[in-house]
Simulated assay, not measured.
Amino acid sequence: MASSSIILLVLVTFAIRDAHASVNSWSYAAHNNIVGRSTLAIFNHQQRPKFVSGQWMQAHATFYEGGSGTYGGACGYEDVVKDGYGMEIAALSTVMFKGGEACGGCYEIKCASDSTQGCNNAGRGQSSIFVTATNLCPPNYNQASNNGGWCNSPREHFDLAKPTFLKIAQYKTGIVPVQYRRVPCKKWGGIRYTITGNPYFNLVKVWNVGGAGDVVGVQVKGDTKLKWIELKRNWGQKWETKAMLVGESLTFRVKASDGRYSTSWHVAPKNWQFGQTFEGKNFK
């Protein structure tokens, strides 16, 4: 009888321990299921490699004149110089602009004309320019794609700021063939978030983005009532939401075109005001 009691006691002890382990495992799994949707987006980007330069492709380039306050209209950049892009910028043809998704992306461009009347460096080693997409080159279907309608679909075309075009090609040329490729964007400091609008309609400009440079998704959350919500692209890199952001300490999360995420925790304090800009974590 004593031996039987000891065996029974051991079996019960193991059963209790296994049951406790099962409960803990279930609790852990349940917790992961609850928070997984929010944390998965935050941490998955750590498994993705940094954005790297793409393959060389063919296109053409022209130039247009303007100022720092006009070169960024279609992307929502009010002043490309103040926003850190300088005059090294380009308007993209419709097929490349992708309804504003390309805004903020960076490109390396080389003039590819064999004519001495085309490239500044014809017959010598080709020099590169590095530009950021800040505008749209609209199509002109009243003109042929190869004769004036340079930005008509499906042409891939860069309309460069005049000072930048003149670094690689001659003014009298007007249009030159180019080679180009996507390259990582190198930015000083963090991603900037500029909030405008009113308590019932918020517009967030996302700029100075490193890495891939072009943002394809934005989320925001507060510190009290506001949970993670998706913002909608208004135009270019301006993102909108009608959620009540006022009175919340705001955290922003952006998704770049290469699938990487960057989360900037509590970059805007509870007492933030419309018109202010806040700096968060950038892509390396």
Score class of each variant (00 low, 15 high):
residue 283 F to P: 09
residue 166 L to R: 12
residue 207 W to C: 04
residue 126 Q to W: 01
residue 154 P to Q: 12
residue 76 G to L: 14
residue 156 E to P: 03
residue 174 G to K: 02
residue 151 C to S: 09
residue 215 V to T: 13
residue 61 A to S: 15
residue 152 N to Q: 06
residue 231 L to K: 05
residue 199 P to T: 04
residue 9 L to E: 10
residue 197 G to R: 08
residue 87 M to H: 09
residue 212 A to I: 10
residue 62 T to N: 03
residue 88 E to I: 00
residue 278 F to Y: 15
residue 161 A to W: 01
residue 79 D to Y: 06
residue 183 V to I: 15
residue 237 Q to A: 06
residue 40 L to R: 11
residue 148 G to M: 11
residue 234 N to I: 00
residue 44 N to D: 15
residue 246 V to H: 02
residue 195 I to H: 04
residue 185 C to S: 14
residue 6 I to R: 15
residue 155 R to Q: 10
residue 75 C to P: 08
residue 170 Q to M: 03
residue 58 Q to Y: 00
residue 250 L to G: 01
residue 236 G to Q: 02
residue 252 F to Q: 09
residue 265 W to R: 10
residue 60 H to Y: 07
residue 43 F to Q: 14
residue 218 V to N: 09
residue 184 P to Q: 04
residue 141 Y to T: 15
residue 113 S to N: 03
residue 247 G to Q: 01
residue 232 K to S: 14
residue 202 N to C: 01
residue 84 G to R: 02
residue 39 T to W: 07
residue 241 T to P: 02
residue 239 W to F: 02
residue 218 V to G: 13
residue 275 G to K: 01
residue 113 S to T: 09
residue 78 E to S: 14
residue 89 I to V: 15
residue 4 S to F: 07
residue 96 M to R: 08
residue 226 L to C: 05
residue 130 F to W: 00
residue 71 Y to R: 08
residue 39 T to H: 02
residue 130 F to G: 00
residue 62 T to D: 14
residue 264 S to K: 08
residue 51 F to E: 11
residue 210 G to P: 01
residue 261 Y to Q: 14
residue 269 P to I: 03
residue 227 K to I: 04
residue 127 S to L: 06
residue 252 F to G: 10
residue 37 R to T: 08
residue 269 P to C: 08
residue 157 H to V: 07
residue 135 N to R: 01
residue 240 E to H: 07
residue 221 K to L: 01
residue 230 E to H: 06
residue 180 Y to S: 07
residue 55 Q to I: 04
residue 30 A to R: 13
residue 260 R to W: 06
residue 239 W to E: 01
residue 273 Q to V: 10
residue 9 L to I: 11
residue 1 M to G: 11
residue 69 G to P: 00
residue 121 N to W: 08
residue 236 G to H: 02
residue 41 A to R: 15
residue 82 K to I: 05
residue 153 S to F: 05
residue 251 T to A: 03
residue 195 I to C: 09
residue 231 L to N: 01
residue 170 Q to G: 07
residue 182 R to H: 13
residue 165 F to C: 02
residue 115 S to I: 02
residue 283 F to D: 13
residue 281 K to T: 15
residue 274 F to W: 04
residue 265 W to E: 11
residue 64 Y to H: 14
residue 111 C to T: 05
residue 66 G to H: 06
residue 219 Q to E: 14
residue 22 S to H: 03
residue 118 G to A: 00
residue 226 L to K: 10
residue 145 S to D: 14
residue 253 R to H: 04
residue 72 G to F: 01
residue 122 A to H: 12
residue 198 N to H: 12
residue 98 K to S: 13
residue 210 G to A: 12
residue 89 I to L: 06
residue 161 A to S: 15
residue 254 V to Y: 07
residue 108 E to R: 07
residue 190 G to F: 10
residue 95 V to S: 14
residue 137 C to A: 14
residue 71 Y to H: 10
residue 164 T to N: 04
residue 181 R to S: 07
residue 283 F to T: 08
residue 157 H to G: 10
residue 260 R to L: 05
residue 232 K to I: 04
